[in-house]
């Protein structure tokens, strides 16, 4: 079976720097997997996710999505299928509803029917945002609420792969627990494939993740997961 994502001999260095962040990194992700990438800050965890959705350009190697080299897929098409949620959630200066429906204003989603207000309300409660009204300003939400809203927004386009960049780093314990619970539910109930990078020691309760550690410019699978 063709893997959902395959990274082959990936090499990357930041512009103007000779030091390689990744040196011939290889990894394969199958559909439905729940992947955790751990490692100290500065090891390139976020960069790995950004390379997958082409927000950064690798120096060498290739990334295949469903067997196709990602450089042959139109960037907008790739990013609506492989959705990346940044560490610090970004909102446009508009209402919660306008933020959630933002992807439907883009050409790539022309012709698709956006979810209605009732559907959004139902989803908001699933994302522990029941107290948030669709017409209120998204800018006034707490960072934890924004993070959950950002994940929800990314999911509305029904991506096949969700890339979460340190989704709980800016959150308090309670908010972090909500996000972890959402992540696990997305995998168990909706069979979403997730790659989450995190530097904290998080042990999922309801899913068995594949845990990698990023060190020495490449990924190492944890022994216990073999």
């Amino acid at each position: 079976m063709t893997p959902l994502l395959e990274i082959r001999n990936l090499s990357f260095a930041y512009e103007g720097s000779a030091a390689l962040v990744f040196d011939r990194l290889n990894v394969t992700v199958q559909e439905g997997e729940f992947i955790l990438v751990k490692g100290p800050s500065g090891s390139g965890k976020s960069t790995l996710l950004r390379l997958i959705c082409r927000l950064n350009k690798p120096q060498g190697g290739s990334i295949l999505f469903q067997g196709n080299d990602t450089t042959t897929i139109a960037p907008a098409k790739l990013r609506s299928t492989v959705s990346y949620v940044a560490q610090i959630p970004q909102m446009i200066d508009a209402s919660v509803e306008e933020n959630l429906l933002l992807p439907f204003s883009f050409a790539i989603n022309a012709g698709k029917t956006p979810p209605g207000t009732d559907e959004l309300k139902e989803m908001l409660s699933k994302f522990y945002l029941a107290g948030v009204r669709p017409d209120q300003s998204a800018m006034k939400l707490s960072i934890g609420q924004k993070q959950r809203l950002a994940i929800m927004r990314a999911l509305l386009q029904k991506p096949l792969l969700l890339l979460l960049d340190e989704p709980t780093s800016a959150l308090d314990q309670e908010s972090a627990a909500m996000v972890f619970s959402i992540m696990e539910r997305l995998n168990t109930e909706e069979h979403k494939t997730l790659i989450t990078v995190t530097h904290i020691d998080y042990k999922p309760e309801t899913v068995r993740p594949l845990t990698y550690t990023l060190a020495h410019q490449t990924l190492h699978l944890h022994e216990s997961d073999h």
């Binding site: 907008a76 990013r79 959705s83 990346y84 933002l102 992807p103 883009f106 790539i108 990314a154 386009q157």
Partner: peptide, 9 residues
């Protein structure tokens, strides 16, 4: 980048 990540060109 947020907009790009959501499928904007």
């Amino acid at each position: 980048e947020m907009k790009l990540s959501l499928g904007a060109n």
